[in-house]
Amino acid sequence: MLQQRCSPSQCPSYIEPQNLTSVSEFFLMGLSDDPELQPLLFGMFLSIYLVTILGNLLIVLTISSDSHLHTPLYLFLSNLSLVDIGFISTTVPKMIVNIQTHSRVISYVGCLTQMSFFILFGCMDGILLTAMAYDRFVAVCHPLHYSVIMSPRLCGFLVLASFLISLLDSQMHNLIVLLLTCFENVEISNFFCDPSQLFNLASSDTFTNNIVMSFVGAIFCFLPFSGILFSYYKIISSILGVPSIAGKYKAFSTCGSHLSVLCLFYGTRLGVYFGSSLSPSPWKDVVTSIMYTIITPMLNPFIYSLRNRDIKSTLWRLYGRLISQYVCNPFWSVGW
């Protein structure tokens, strides 16, 4: 499993070369070592995964089936649902397989692939939420020019740009990990290949890599977040200028679902960052990782379906259509 590759010229002089290895496999420590908990964990995370897939697919089906929902906001929402499906599919299936097979091994190539897709879909989530914030800004602050500003060409460009920027981000992380030739440890104290933990396992001089990672984080995380803050600053300023309370409520209600998803998305990530900085704990990192990699994608479709009147009405119409088709075409009429 371990192959000695570090030479004294490659590794720091203060560490013995035999303690530094080039790895072909990593070990994902997972959630628990207790064998009695494994069936419970398997059933719980399999159920969460299926609910997430079905919920997000239902959002995509609902939006695509109703021409009234073919608007910029719902275009971004359908893409967000597809990204959430990819995001949770990056980590949970591997964890479920590991629980079922009682194995914690992930290959070096598999780990880099998982990390790459994890960053790709995670970054796309943030950029699409930023595009949705800009859409709400135009809808609230420039309603008369909404259809002109949010043209199909601009919306398509924003979706494509979110993919290309996220792909660049993931490949930059991949390149940095590939440059880390020496590792002191092969145990990742999480259920997936967390990029930050991979960097912490490296034993080579990572000062330059840390500078690059800070720069990459500033571009791909801080800028989208700044765009969201600026959009909502303008939205709130515009809403406060509305004279009637009913008008303020109507304007703010258009942003309610998006704000809920934003708080869930960035709240869990900020919790991971500040929690690990103030009081480092492997178990706390695992719990917060579950929140933003598993729970958030599962809750997004519920937030948008329960708080959005258009989504709810379309879902009821689809349900009524299915019921009417079943009543008009019972099983025995088709040969049962």
Rank of each mutant, 00 (worst) to 15 (best):
Y304Q: 03
V327D: 07
S260K: 13
L164A: 11
F87R: 10
G267L: 05
S151K: 04
L73N: 12
I96P: 05
Y108S: 07
W336A: 08
S67P: 08
F42K: 13
C11F: 04
L167I: 09
N185P: 07
G267W: 02
E25S: 04
T52D: 02
D169P: 00
F192D: 05
N185C: 12
P8K: 05
Q3A: 13
Q197F: 00
P35D: 00
S189D: 12
K234C: 02
S237P: 00
S277G: 04
E187H: 15
F76L: 09
N79G: 09
K248W: 01
G122H: 01
A218Y: 06
L41H: 06
I239F: 04
K248N: 05
L69Y: 03
T21A: 08
K234N: 11
A251W: 08
T208N: 06
P72N: 08
I235V: 13
E25R: 06
V272M: 01
C6V: 02
R136M: 00
P72C: 09
L198M: 00
I53L: 15
V212M: 04
A246G: 12
C155V: 15
P330S: 02
G43R: 08
C141G: 05
F199Y: 07
F220C: 03
T206Q: 01
Y249L: 14
F117G: 01
F118H: 08
F183D: 07
D34T: 11
S162M: 04
P152Y: 06
F192H: 07
Y134I: 10
C155R: 15
L31W: 05
I290T: 07
I311V: 05
M172A: 05
G241S: 14
L31C: 04
H102G: 11
K284C: 13
I63N: 00
D169L: 05
S64Y: 13
F76S: 07
A202H: 08
N210H: 11
I96E: 06
F117C: 00
F207Q: 15
E25A: 02
S231Y: 03
Q100P: 03
C111S: 03
V97L: 12
V138A: 00
L201Q: 05
F215C: 02
S116Q: 14
N79C: 14
S147L: 10
I99M: 08
Y292E: 05
L306K: 10
P8N: 02
L264V: 06
N210E: 10
I119A: 00
T208F: 09
S305T: 08
P243E: 11
I59G: 01
H102K: 13
P35V: 03
F215I: 03
L75S: 15
L315G: 10
V23E: 14
G256E: 10
S64T: 13
P17L: 05
C255T: 15
M95C: 03
R153L: 12
Y134S: 06
L318D: 06
Y74H: 07
S276F: 10
S166Y: 01
I127Y: 09
L240R: 15
T296C: 06
N300R: 15
T21V: 10
W336Y: 14
N174T: 02
A131Q: 11
G227P: 02
L50R: 12
T288K: 09
Y74F: 08
S22C: 14
L69K: 01
N300L: 11
V97I: 11
D310F: 08
V138M: 06
H142T: 09
S9H: 10
S226W: 10
